[in-house]
């Protein structure tokens, strides 16, 4: 299963919850930080890094000797990354989304693939958990293309671990779970991070900002038709509006982390909060169990469908 830990508002405790879940998750797992603008999961999991790769985007590179200045590429480009000014063809690689349209439409095959560095993918091992993150280059504006590359790497690591865990041919027996630390907000990067998940865990806090941003996140993720649950961080601070909202939308509150200065100080010193006390460990083990139950329904549905097909019944 793939679990995405998300939130509308930043700083509600996504990384706190993700790192604690990774720590108590007693199954084969991959911790994946998709908050590529400000990745923080590694600061808590402290993985041993075993690999790093530069991630890039194929941007237009014009071969002047072949270019006939027909302007088809600049007419097509929706992002102002290529512009024909009189007899001068200018490229602005930082504007390019990497759609490949210019390369495909050029009648002279004059446009080749240049490389814009988006950032790095970094992977390794954090205790029993595999670890993967993307880190956007400072100055790079677009996080979704880097997130796509990290997700490709995630597939590769998942496949590799399945092979290693299963014996030879039977890869289906042990497919690692994935815990994704998603970026804040509700626009394209956040959606991109949760779009492949089986379950979305929304982390919020009982404050007016927390509730308002939870409403936005709920509205944004609802069209994905994925099961969602809520963790309330800093419970006891603020007011009751978040509980009313969750009741109204039938969102299950799966855990409440109390508002406590000790927890905040432990977080500030870089500790994983499921490690700080037996209560916190129980809280997160319980949360992990609830998430699995919520997702096992889904798996049972699929098994049921498969069994029905096998038995010749039409579903």
């Amino acid at each position: 299963m793939i679990l995405a830990v998300a939130s509308g508002k930043g700083g509600t405790g996504k990384t706190t919850v993700s790192s604690a879940l990774v720590s108590v998750w007693n199954r084969t797992r991959i911790a994946c930080d998709l908050d590529v603008e400000e990745p923080n999961l590694h600061l808590f999991l402290r993985p041993e890094i075993t690999g790093t790769e530069k991630a890039g985007l194929a941007v237009p590179e014009i071969d002047e000797s072949k270019c006939s200045k027909c302007g088809k590429c600049s007419d097509l480009c929706q992002f102002k990354a290529i512009s024909l000014m009189g007899e001068l063809l200018l490229t602005f690689p930082e504007m390019c989304h990497g759609c490949g349209g210019c390369m495909a439409i050029c009648p002279e095959q004059a446009i080749g693939k240049g490389f814009r560095e988006l950032g790095d993918t970094v992977w390794g091992q954090a205790g029993e958990s595999a670890f993967l993150m993307g880190r956007l280059r400072v100055g790079e504006a677009m996080s979704p293309p880097l997130m796509r590359i990290v997700k490709e790497k995630l597939k590769e690591i998942t496949a590799q671990m399945s092979r290693e865990q299963g014996d030879g041919d039977s890869v289906s027996s042990v497919i690692p779970d994935v815990i994704i630390d998603a970026p804040p907000g509700v626009s394209c990067p956040a959606l991109n991070a949760v779009s492949d998940s089986d379950f979305i865990l929304l982390v919020t806090e009982p404050t007016p900002f927390g509730v308002y941003d939870l409403e936005l996140a709920h509205e944004a993720f609802l069209p994905l038709h994925k099961p969602m649950g809520v963790v309330i961080n800093r419970a006891g601070l603020g007011d009751n509006a978040v509980y009313e909202f969750c009741a109204d939308k039938e969102l299950q509150i799966m855990a409440e982390i109390p508002y406590d200065r000790g927890i905040a100080e432990n977080y500030a010193s870089g500790r994983i909060i499921s490690d700080i006390s037996p209560e916190m460990h129980r809280l997160f083990s319980g949360l992990a169990g609830k998430i699995r139950i919520a997702c096992s329904h889904k798996t049972m549905d699929n098994l049921y469908i498969r069994a029905a097909i096998k038995g010749g019944n039409r579903v």
């Binding site: 700083g11 400000e38 400072v138 677009m142 996080s143 804040p184 907000g185």
Partner: peptide, 10 residues
């Protein structure tokens, strides 16, 4: 401002 260092921040 927005959080992060990406498109809206730039």
């Amino acid at each position: 401002g927005p959080p992060g260092i990406g498109c809206p921040v730039i």
